[in-house]
C-alpha cells in the first residue's frame, strides 16, 4: 500500500500533462433563412480573400472557414455566380502550453465580425471560441 502511495505521489510530481488538443482554427458557419431555418445556398466559390479557394460549385447549409493564426483578421469572399459578398472576422490568440511533448498552441478567441457586405443583423457570432467540439460559431441569415 505504501509503495502504491509513493508511486502515486512521485507520478504526480513528474506529471507532464495530457496531450488533449482542443483548439481548432475553423470558424463553423451555419446558413439560415430569415426565420431561422436551415438554408441551402449555392456558391460558385467560397475563398479566402486573395488566397485559397475553399469550396467550388457547392450547395451548402454550413461552411467551415479556416483562420490563419498568424494574422488576427480574415476576409472571405462568397461568390454566388450572379454576385458576391465579403465577410471579415477578427479574433485574438490565447497561447497555451499543453505539455513539453505536446507543445504550445494558439487558441482563437473573441471572434467578432469586423466588416463585409452583409447587413449587420445578417451575421451573428454564436460562439466566439474556435474549439474542436464547437458545433457552430457563426450564423449567416439569407
Amino acid at each position: 500500500m505504501a509503495a502504491i502511495s509513493l508511486v502515486w505521489v512521485l507520478s504526480s510530481c513528474f506529471d507532464q500533462g495530457e496531450c488533449l488538443i482542443t483548439n481548432s482554427n475553423i470558424i463553423r458557419v451555419s446558413l439560415r433563412t430569415k426565420d431561422n431555418q436551415p438554408a441551402t445556398i449555392t456558391f460558385a466559390s467560397v475563398s479566402v480573400l486573395n488566397d485559397t479557394v475553399l469550396y467550388t460549385n457547392k450547395s451548402l447549409t454550413a461552411l467551415d472557414l479556416p483562420v490563419n493564426p498568424g494574422v488576427l483578421e480574415m476576409t472571405y469572399v462568397f461568390d454566388y455566380g450572379d454576385g458576391t459578398d465579403t465577410l471579415s472576422f477578427g479574433y485574438t490568440n490565447q497561447h497555451v502550453v499543453l505539455s513539453p511533448s505536446c507543445g504550445a498552441f494558439p487558441y482563437q478567441r473573441n471572434l467578432s465580425v469586423t466588416g463585409g457586405t452583409f447587413k449587420t443583423d445578417s451575421v451573428k457570432v454564436t460562439n466566439p471560441s474556435l474549439l474542436k467540439d464547437a458545433l457552430e460559431n457563426v450564423r449567416i441569415y439569407y
Partner: peptide, 18 residues
C-alpha cells in the same frame, strides 16, 4: 515568456513570441 512556431493546413508556419 513563450516562444514557439505553429502551422496549420492552408497557411504558412507562424512564429510567436508572447
Amino acid at each position: 515568456q513563450l516562444t514557439y512556431s505553429y502551422d496549420v493546413k492552408q497557411f504558412p508556419r507562424s512564429n510567436y513570441d508572447v
